[in-house]
Design a protein around this nucleic acid. Sequence first.
DNA 1: CTGAAAGCGCTTACAG
DNA 2: CTGAAAGCGCTTACAG
Lengths: 348, 348
Amino acid sequence: MTTLSGSGRPGNTRPTIRDVAALARVSLKTVSRVVNGEGSVSDELTGRVQRAIEQLDFRPNFTASSLRRTGGRTKTIGLVLEDLANPFSAAVVRAVEDVARQRGVMVLAGSVDEDPARERALVADFLAHSVDGLIIVPAGADQSYLAPGRRSGTPVVFVDRPPQNLNADAVVAANRDGAAIGVDHLIRHGHRRIAFIGDLPAIRTAADRELGFRDAMARREVDIDEALVRRNVRGVDEAIEVTQRLMELPDPPTALFAAQNVLALGAYAGLRRLGRRADTALVGFDDFPVADLLEPAVTVVAQNPGGIGTLAAETLFRRLDGDDDAMVTHVVPTELIQRGSGEIAPRA
Amino acid sequence: MTTLSGSGRPGNTRPTIRDVAALARVSLKTVSRVVNGEGSVSDELTGRVQRAIEQLDFRPNFTASSLRRTGGRTKTIGLVLEDLANPFSAAVVRAVEDVARQRGVMVLAGSVDEDPARERALVADFLAHSVDGLIIVPAGADQSYLAPGRRSGTPVVFVDRPPQNLNADAVVAANRDGAAIGVDHLIRHGHRRIAFIGDLPAIRTAADRELGFRDAMARREVDIDEALVRRNVRGVDEAIEVTQRLMELPDPPTALFAAQNVLALGAYAGLRRLGRRADTALVGFDDFPVADLLEPAVTVVAQNPGGIGTLAAETLFRRLDGDDDAMVTHVVPTELIQRGSGEIAPRA
DNA sequence: CTGAAAGCGCTTACAG
DNA sequence: CTGAAAGCGCTTACAG
């Protein structure tokens, strides 16, 4: 028995439309018609083609077809995220995937770990692979490098943080308003000495949340003791340490606002070590698993990563469908979830 | 000024190698040589080509090139997971991504939600997109559908659960041994009435963990009270309910072994509601965030999802590099992490 | 209803 | 060192 593959390549190659055509004794175009369900093929030929497909276990090469097909969509989109392993990124991917699936679109995803160079490299790789669109959590402070690509028709939607030096759609959480609501909650429970624990101010969301903290304090005319404002705190361990330092001040805070979930965890652990968990209020920004199982359970200003991802994907597909209205920034509201830690009154 | 694109398509299309060649007044092949750094191009022409590339912001279409290139690799692999949003899946993707990145390979990922039909559909989609290889957490009980694809040269590595009706590489956790170690830990702390809380026995890992539970009990000659063996428990809420039922038995267990992290969370919450957290031992299988912040902190048999993902990716790439040794199943060891809940002695 | 030719963006195999 | 032709797997535009 001879090799079915016409070009005489080794036998273990995937069958092509040419092999099917040869076996069914029809033209390439007829196979193409059957595969794409174009109709207008006689039952006789349709049958022969289908049997050949079955027999060879032929699967059309979608990538090859998109090369010539009008529009030339590859039915893939690229996701540039902070870290696929963190719950926020993971929830975004999942939500995007669900929207994409309905359209038969696959998702390529990659982590950037806050490295601007890696952001650009990943975008370049996705573009080289001809993705139809991009969803990006920007790490760098300049997205102007995307301008040429966008001109050539690849839409981009930013998530979590707005782009800089580029006019593009974005979907962000209500960082400033949400933080203000969380802090206001503490003030209404009687606190006036409220500490702020935040990440690098260079990260836009961290800066916005600090602004929200200041908004709330100003609106209620509560003085901010700058000694209680701690920025540049990274990771659980640093948050634990910072919390312990804060609580050991001569005039310590009665409440903590931790502007990120990991920092809230650190604050919780720090309070616990000092035995101050039960008498110090704590509100965190961004929910985390098991927050409700801690004691006291942790009150948070919850983001909606699933909602953010869904909206980002919908925005991207709207652009792919031809929408060329002005770029918009969607702000997804946060939700204050009261669980106990945020409702502790100040010590007498 | 005329359109640079020779074919007269609308101007906002991405420039091609042809546009570059025209602008640099060289042949296609010369552009190709420069782009691929083949050398053997005069400085004169190299310069002209590079300037044209710069000027047009040309980015080679990798997908098109792989169509003709020998080997025809697309430098993409497909990941079929349970749910991208769950920590186990997320950790696996991240680990795979890191290995793939070193080779300039991108990862396509999708969730299957324990739906066998979705597993097959996703695999078919990945294959249609010509991925170079697949990493799969199987949902269905039959992977024979992959045999034809594998014959045509796409390697597949299974993760978390071995494939059925298909001879392929796999990377799994030491479910049976790990569970036995966790249960043995409870026995050594004096427990004899130990409850087992597990997921659907149809899921291989759940079944294996129950076997491990039975192994440990048999080895120490502890009788199993079948009334304390609860299978088919799904999700936190069911685990909470099951735990409450168990603790309300006339002769309740003194220790619980929860064979999955979500079930451990439910067991913890269930004990807490009954005020039995501090006097009932609990060991969970598979670690979870914040397990160390609960009180008591939860003792677990930790899997190593990162290690599993890394090993799976390495195995896949080894196959892509031509390794055709016999298929192997790698068993990644678990680690018992003692945190408090597993070291509680039985009530007197 | 059916097919032969040309082409998608790029590389291979060959010739100079 | 350089290029013209053929081809990767498929679709388009045209002809019958």
